[in-house]
Write a protein that binds this DNA or RNA. Structure first.
Length: 334
DNA sequence: CTTTCGCCCTGAGTGC
DNA sequence: TGCACTCAGGGCGAAA
C-alpha cells in the first residue's frame, strides 16, 4: 500500500544510515524477492558485498541506492514491503526476505532488513542510465539541485546525529556526483512524480488530452505520472470533484489543473503526517506506519457521509480494486 | 501502436 | 473450533 508519501518516509529514514555505508554482508532468505534482479547482471550477493551505498533516491514509489561501483540497489516495496533498520542481532519475524549487513563510518553496524509479507516488492542490482533531460533522476534529500525540500525532517536521535555524518548539501562549486542525473534502467520508463521539480505539467496535460481512457486509470499509470496509488487517487479525485471514470480527454483545462493541484496537496499533506509519525525508538522505517488514515475523506469510507455534502460514499469495483467516491460531488460530465 | 486484463502473493477477516 | 473462502492492490507481461 505504500504510495509516494510512505515511500518518502522510508527513504528519508534510511538516508542518514545508508549514505556512505559499506555493505559487509548479504543474505537472501527468499529468492522470490529478487524477481526484478536480472541474473545476467551477476550474483546479487556478490555484487553488493564490499560495495558502498552513496545515497537514497526515490522516484514515485521506486527507491534506489547508488553504489560506489556505479550500479544501484533498486528497491520496490510493492504492497507490503518494509525496509527496517535494526541493531545487529535483532530478531525478525518469518517475513524477512533479504538482509544487508552495513557498516557506517560514524553510526557503526546495522542490519537493513527487507521484510515483505506478500512478496510484491523486490530488490535488484541494476545499472544507472543518464536522465534524458540531465535533471536529477529522483529525490535524494534537501540540497542544491538534489530535488525539493521535504515537508518535514525525520525526527529521532539516530537520524539527527546521522545528519551531521552525511555529506552536506552540494554547493555550486562542487561537481554533482555521477549518480545524481541518473536513473536505474528498470525505473527509466517510470514518469517523474508530481512533487519532482522537473515534472512537466504541460506535458502531463497534453498526455491526458491524447489518451483514450478514464482519469483514474491515467492517474495510476506510472508511465504518465508516478507515485499515486489507489488511496491517494481516490482522495485527489474527491477533492477535485471528478468521477474516476471521467474520460481524460474530456477534462477541461481548469479541471485538469485543479486535479494536479489536489494531487500535490494530498501527497504533501500525507508526507507531513508521515513525517510526524516517524518511529524513532528503533528507527523503524516502516512503509505502513506513515498512513494518515484519520484524514481520509473517501477511501474506505463507503456508507459514511461525504464530508462535503453528506451523501453516502459509494465503493465500486474497478481495475480489480476499490474505487471510493461521492455520487453527488463526483459525477461524469460531458 | 494503445488499452485492458490477469496474475503474482499471503495474512487478516468473514461466514457457515 | 475449524475450515473454506474472499479481500487487499503495484507492476508487468500477455492479450485484445
Amino acid at each position: 500500500m505504500p504510495e509516494l508519501p510512505e515511500v518518502e518516509v522510508v527513504r528519508a529514514g534510511l538516508e542518514p544510515a545508508v549514505t556512505i555505508a559499506l555493505i559487509t554482508g548479504v543474505e537472501v532468505f527468499d529468492q522470490r524477492s529478487l524477481k526484478r534482479h536480472a541474473p545476467a547482471a551477476g550474483d546479487f550477493e556478490t555484487l553488493l558485498t564490499g560495495d558502498r551505498m552513496l545515497a537514497a533516491v526515490r522516484r514515485g514509489k521506486f527507491l534506489w541506492f547508488p553504489l560506489s561501483s556505479g550500479a544501484a540497489l533498486v528497491t520496490h516495496l510493492g504492497m507490503s514491503g518494509q525496509v527496517l533498520l535494526r541493531e545487529p542481532g535483532t530478531a525478525e519475524n518469518g517475513l524477512l526476505r533479504i538482509r544487508l549487513s552495513i557498516e557506517h563510518p560514524r553510526l557503526g553496524e546495522y542490519w537493513v532488513n527487507f521484510v515483505d509479507q506478500r512478496i510484491f516488492g523486490s530488490m535488484a542490482v541494476d545499472t544507472l542510465l543518464p536522465t534524458p533531460d540531465a535533471r536529477a533522476g529522483g529525490y535524494s534529500g534537501p540540497g542544491l539541485e538534489r530535488g525539493w525540500p521535504p515537508a518535514t525532517q525525520p525526527a529521532g536521535a539516530l537520524a539527527a546525529s546521522a545528519l551531521a555524518a552525511t555529506a552536506g548539501p552540494i554547493t555550486a562549486q562542487e561537481e554533482a556526483p555521477a549518480w545524481l542525473a541518473a536513473v536505474p534502467s528498470q525505473v527509466a520508463h517510470i514518469a517523474r512524480d508530481p512533487l519532482d521539480p522537473a515534472f512537466d505539467d504541460r506535458a502531463f496535460f497534453a498526455a491526458l488530452k491524447r489518451k483514450n481512457t478514464g482519469i483514474k486509470r491515467a492517474m495510476l499509470d506510472q508511465t504518465l505520472v508516478s507515485g499515486i496509488g489507489n488511496i491517494y487517487a481516490d482522495e485527489a479525485l474527491w477533492a477535485a470533484k471528478i468521477h474516476y471514470a471521467q474520460p481524460t480527454a474530456s477534462l477541461s483545462p481548469r479541471s485538469a489543473r485543479l486535479l494536479l493541484t489536489e494531487i500535490r496537496l494530498v501527497l504533501t499533506k500525507a508526507l507531513a503526517e508521515g513525517g510526524t509519525s516517524f518511529d524513532a525508538t528503533y528507527v523503524n522505517v516502516n512503509g505502513a506506519s506513515g498512513y494518515f488514515s484519520h484524514s481520509l475523506n473517501v477511501y474506505g469510507q463507503q456508507g459514511k457521509p461525504c464530508p462535503r455534502c453528506g451523501t453516502l460514499i459509494v465503493r465500486e469495483s474497478f481495475m480489480n480494486r476499490g474505487s471510493h467516491f461521492c455520487p453527488k460531488c463526483q459525477r461524469v460530465r460531458n
